[in-house]
C-alpha cells in the first residue's frame, strides 16, 4: 500500500514537474543573438510599423512627447485592466537590458527576471519578427528620451493574476506558423510580415476564444472592441470591398473611400503607417486583398 501511495505521489510530482517544465518561461538563447548588431535608423521604421509608441507613450501625448515611452495608458479588457509599462531607456524602463533580454521580451513574452508577460503585450504577433529587426528596434529605443516614471501594476483579478497560467496560454497561442500559409510573391509576403508580425493587426481585428487566444479560423473577420463598446470591423475581402489603393490611401491619410475618417485606436495606427514607405502600405493592402 505504501508503495502504491509512494508511486502515486511520485507520479503527481512528476506530472506537476512536467507541467512546470512545459509552461516555464523560455528566454531567447544567448547564441541566437550573439552575432546580431542593431541599426537604429532601420529600427525607427520597425518602431513605427510595430506601433510601440501608440500603447507605451503617456496618455494623450502629442508630437515629440510621443517618443517618451513612459507608459501609463490603461487598457480595460475582460481579463482585467493592463497598464502599459515604462519602456524608455532608463532604470525605470528597459535601460541596461541586453539584446537577449529585449528579444526574449518582444518575441517570447519573457521578462529579464524570467517572468511571463501578459499577452496584452502582443508578443504572440512579434514572435514572427526577424531577430535582425528586433536588434534594430532595440538600437532605436536606445536613442529615445529616458523617463523615470515608475511603471504601474496591472489590475488583474484571480485567477488571471497567476502569471504561471500564462505559460499554458503560450502553449496554445504562441505559434511560429503564419496564418496565411501561402503568401504568393514578394509584396504579399511583405504584407504578411507587416500584418501578422509587426503591426499586429490580428490582435484587435480577430475575435478571441474564451481564454483570450486569437481564433485563427476567423482571422481578421472583426471582433468586439476589447476596451469599450462597439466593434472592430472585419477587414477581409468578404467584409471590406475597398480596392487595394483605397486601403493604402486609408493607411496614409485615415480617409475611407467615402471620406469618413479613422478614429479611436485606429487613428494611431494610421499615424504610424503614414510614416512608412508607400510600398509598405501597398503591401498591407495586397495582403488583405489576398485573404480568402
Amino acid at each position: 500500500m505504501r508503495r502504491v501511495i509512494g508511486a502515486g505521489l511520485g507520479l503527481a510530482v512528476l506530472a506537476g514537474g512536467i507541467g512546470w517544465w512545459i509552461t516555464r518561461p523560455v528566454p531567447v538563447p544567448p547564441e541566437a543573438v550573439a552575432d546580431v548588431t542593431g541599426d537604429a535608423s532601420h529600427g525607427e521604421e520597425v518602431f513605427w510599423a510595430a506601433g510601440c509608441a501608440s500603447c507605451h507613450m503617456a496618455p494623450d501625448a502629442k508630437g515629440e512627447a510621443q517618443l517618451v515611452l513612459s507608459g501609463g495608458q490603461r487598457f480595460e479588457t475582460p481579463f482585467g485592466t493592463f497598464v502599459a509599462p515604462n519602456i524608455s531607456p532608463s532604470p525605470a524602463g528597459i535601460g541596461g537590458w541586453t539584446l537577449e533580454d529585449f528579444a526574449s521580451a518582444v518575441t517570447r513574452g519573457v521578462s529579464p527576471s524570467g517572468q511571463h508577460y501578459y499577452p496584452a503585450f502582443p508578443y504572440a504577433s512579434y514572435t514572427h519578427m526577424r531577430l535582425q529587426d528586433v536588434a534594430d528596434l532595440k538600437a532605436f529605443f536606445e536613442t529615445l528620451p529616458p523617463s523615470d516614471t515608475e511603471s504601474q501594476p496591472h489590475e488583474v483579478p484571480f485567477p488571471f493574476s497567476i502569471r504561471a497560467s500564462i505559460g499554458a496560454w503560450k502553449l496554445l497561442n504562441l505559434r511560429k506558423d503564419w496564418v496565411m500559409t501561402d503568401a504568393g510573391g514578394e509584396e504579399i509576403a511583405r504584407g504578411r510580415y507587416l500584418v501578422e508580425a509587426l503591426a499586429h493587426c490580428g490582435e484587435c481585428h480577430t475575435p478571441r476564444d474564451a481564454l483570450g487566444g486569437l481564433d485563427r479560423s476567423a482571422w481578421l473577420e472583426g471582433a468586439p472592441n476589447p476596451s469599450g463598446e462597439g466593434r472592430i470591423p472585419g477587414i477581409t475581402p468578404a467584409q471590406l470591398d475597398w480596392s487595394q489603393s483605397d486601403i493604402a490611401y486609408y493607411l496614409e491619410t485615415g480617409f475611407t473611400p467615402d471620406f469618413d475618417s479613422a478614429g479611436g485606436h485606429m487613428a494611431h495606427v494610421v499615424a504610424n503607417f503614414a510614416r512608412l514607405p508607400a510600398s509598405d502600405r501597398n503591401a498591407v493592402a495586397a495582403y488583405l486583398k489576398a485573404l480568402n
Partner: peptide
C-alpha cells in the same frame, strides 16, 4: 475622432 468618437 481618436478621442471623442466611439467605434461603429
Amino acid at each position: 475622432h481618436e478621442k471623442h468618437r466611439a467605434p461603429e
